[in-house]
Design a protein around this nucleic acid. Sequence first.
RNA 1: GUCCCUGUAGCUCAGUGGAUAGAGUGCUUCCCUGCGAAGGAAGAGACCGGAGGUUCAAAUCCUCCCAGGGACACCA
Length: 561
Amino acid sequence: MYSGRLGSLEMTKKLILEFCSYHMILIREQIKNLVNKAYKKAQDRKRLPEFVMPEITVEHPAQKEFGDYATNAPLVTGAIANIPPLNIAESVVLEIEEDMEMNELKKSLIERIKIQKPGFLNFYLKSEFLQGEAQKILDQKENFGSINIGQGKKVQVEFVSANPTGPLSVGNARGGPWGDVLANVLRKAGYKVEKAYYVNDYGQQILALGHSVLKDEEAVYKGGYIDDLHQKIKEQDSFKAGQQASKIILDDYIKKTLENIGIKFDQWYFESDVYNSGFVDVALSHLKDQNLLKEKDGAIWFLSSKFGDIRDRVVIKTDGQKTYLAGDLGFHWRKFQQEKFDKVINVWGADHSGDAPGLKAGIDALGFKDKLEFVILQFVTLFSKGKKVKMSKRAGNIVTLQELLDEVGKDAVRFFFLQRSANTHLDFDLNLAKEQSNKNPVYYIQYAYARICSVLRKVVATDQAVTINQTRITESERDLICQLVRLPEIIADTARDYQAQRLPHHASELAASFHCFYHDCRVLGNEDPSIDQARLALVRATQIVLKNTLDLMGITAPEKM
RNA sequence: GUCCCUGUAGCUCAGUGGAUAGAGUGCUUCCCUGCGAAGGAAGAGACCGGAGGUUCAAAUCCUCCCAGGGACACCA
């Protein structure tokens, strides 16, 4: 396990690189700052009237002809100040040209700024600047893409958390890759992240599992795994049998499948432990102190409707048992009060979307407003031969995640699950996924990586004395660099809005840019050896970025296929 | 009945206030005695479910309607 201690020089170098990457200002932020500064200056000098500057957006234009970055700031501010947008655009550009400091920045960064109807500013970056940015990738290596918008804040991502009453099914498996990758991205964005699984080993479903294992008249669950457990478990008490069974299911089915899909949790929380540690009672007493608990029909209700919920929720049943919500409140009390998480993100399936407002209300009431967020994933529907596959754990006809992994492989499963936005219902075509061909986008990306490795294998030392600088670069080289330097922006966007599907899309685009470059540009054997060097460096940079992106997604980067 | 999500090219989906709505796949072509053709290039294919509205500007925001999925427990 020892990788050897880093020498002090290496250590210093590593620290410097980390420092640099953490303090890297995104290219689009640099442009944004420039534009904001120009507006301020123009207002100071009365070229533009005073108005409150709105938050402006700098983005990648859809059309290549509109430059590398663009802003619609003149359009937006034109409407505010009631001035023709094009006039504003002219003032802004003039200000940048005239101001020494801004012009210096512009000169190092931007080839030209174009004013475009009806009121856009299009920025065309200097090729030298882009080459310099690509060079940084070679220095930062696996750290490239790291940013520090998280500033070390503690975030917990809780996901999967499937009941230990059966193997993971395809239906509830979507949160696996999704939560895992979201956590990876947040980590890359400078948050201190914990991946957590909440094991519901307490309550009615354990008893139901026990009856099922004993195969008595109250049996609920069916399936091959129940038959196995029936053979294995000798315990005759139904609850104890359920507890034993749930442990076996967790270890032999759930944990193994998670390992096979490449997910490693940092923390396993047990519902039974939350109760035994008294967190539930503490949380409830805090609600009681605020007069938010009320008895009605013999049960105790939490008045969650006072916090925007559509109705109140029972926390203690007539029989004195606490509800799941009570337990969850205790669990979250522990997360925030004891473990001091700055943010908790719960990745839930749509079947639990109706319960989120109750928990959210409780957390608000307990004083942790805005620290709890939800990502609700819509359902996965399996299609086989064009027909919908019915899934039901109780009927025993589930398609397990393990089965899917066995047939399709980890990489394809993860990629397919990640590709779609959380609120989209995911249609998973089994036949298509089973088909291991070029139809599958994950192969397209992995093929790019394998091609890269193949080229790099042909040369001995690629990392040393290689510079990306070259007086003239082709269009496809430039396009490739533009894709490469986008990774930090992808990380920043995803850490902000949790839209993890950006990663697979970016990987696809990057692979496309590479394939195009590779087709257009000969890497080895050019007459001018300096071109070989520059292109090798670019290939190496692409390898780094592709690897970093695939690592974030938990997808294999194969050196050969 | 109420609440949540969705409706974009034949199919699967990106795009959530701006420029000529993008990919992949499928279809029609073209490109290997040069580093991996599991690749590249080109073409056809969409009045963004429908109707109103807000806005200088709507696939994107609001209202209603239609269609599909999910949730509406003193289950977890």
